[in-house]
Amino acid sequence: MGGTGSDQTMNLTLNVWRQKNRRAEGEFVTYEAKDINPDMSFLEMLDVVNEHLISRGEEPIAFDHDCREGICGQCGIVINGSPHGPRGATTTCQLHMRSFHNGDVLTLEPWRANAFPVIKDLMVDRGAFDRIVAAGGFITAPTGNAPEANSVPVPKENADLAMDAAACIGCGACVAACPNASAMLFVAAKASHLNLLPQGQPERSRRVLGMVERMDGEGFGGCTNHGECEAACPKEISIKFIARMNRDHHKASLLRIFS
């Protein structure tokens, strides 16, 4: 792995949101992160800070993480106002300390949305996303062996678009970045990747109606076309999918009204 080749370590000041539990009033607490290797990931830097906290008998900073490879969607911290930090197309776990400078002051906040209650410190409950998917983000198909891949023809353009949408890892950075805490990019990606494929057609209308209704019910805001979600998305999912979902929703609603 390419590093900076530098032995220079960094010292940073962190203003971290600390909140004991869902009901507690949180507050910002300042920590010094000393002797940080620029080749550490952001989460490894937090691991180091936490080891110091534990050795002093203090409560470590709670944050979500799992694969640390940028593919699971677990991690996510708002760093200086940007979900997943300043680099584009990068999850927090894939963000390296060389993206910052020695002496930087960083503000670390959880995703802030009514639909994502804080569990502890920087961890939020993204169960709302699971409930949206459960409201239509699936296909009803008999289980068993995977069918022969080429038995159902899929136009190349649709396969590519569906793949772009399916890249969504459900991290919630779109909600965190949106000035309205809207989940429309997530819902659009999850609805579109199935609505673009033959396997998704039988439940096409039910899917978009069900998922949007659940999205509204969870208390997410609406899209005002700022484009912040797209800029924050670590998988660079385009807001074109929101337009596609809008169209699918208009069609499905009209079909429902006149059926």
Partner: peptide, 18 residues
């Protein structure tokens, strides 16, 4: 709805595309 969707504001906000 949009106001209610984020009851607690961020301390710091960085806009990229808005």
């Amino acid at each position: 709805r949009n106001q209610e969707a984020r009851p607690k504001a961020y301390r710091q906000t960085t806009r990229k595309e808005a």
